[in-house]
């Protein structure tokens, strides 16, 4: 799957499942500051990613993920 396709899927999850405003979801957007996804929300996001892409994500893989782009890169590397 191309990086761009992963981004579109991630964007879809953020907008449809989490109710986040579509215009805010860019590769540069910061999960906490820009999208208001707090520590509880991150767990939801991970669950949504795992279901959508049929992968498993360990908590320590998330240590360096703070933007949408970084999340997309991580997912891309695991698919």
């Amino acid at each position: 799957m191309e990086l761009n396709e992963v981004f579109e899927k991630v964007k879809g999850l953020f907008v449809e499942d989490l109710g986040i405003d579509e215009s805010k979801v860019t590769m540069e957007a910061k999960l906490e500051e820009d999208l208001e996804i707090d520590s509880l929300g991150i767990v939801e996001v991970v669950m949504a990613f795992e279901d959508e892409f049929e992968i498993e994500i360990d908590d320590d893989e998330l240590a360096d993920v703070s933007t949408v782009g970084q999340a997309v890169q991580l997912l891309h590397s695991k698919i």
Binding site: L18, G19, I20, D21, E36, L40
Partner: peptide
Amino acid sequence: ANEYMGKQHARK
């Protein structure tokens, strides 16, 4: 609730 407070807040 989604209409009243927005889905992102309501789902919490």
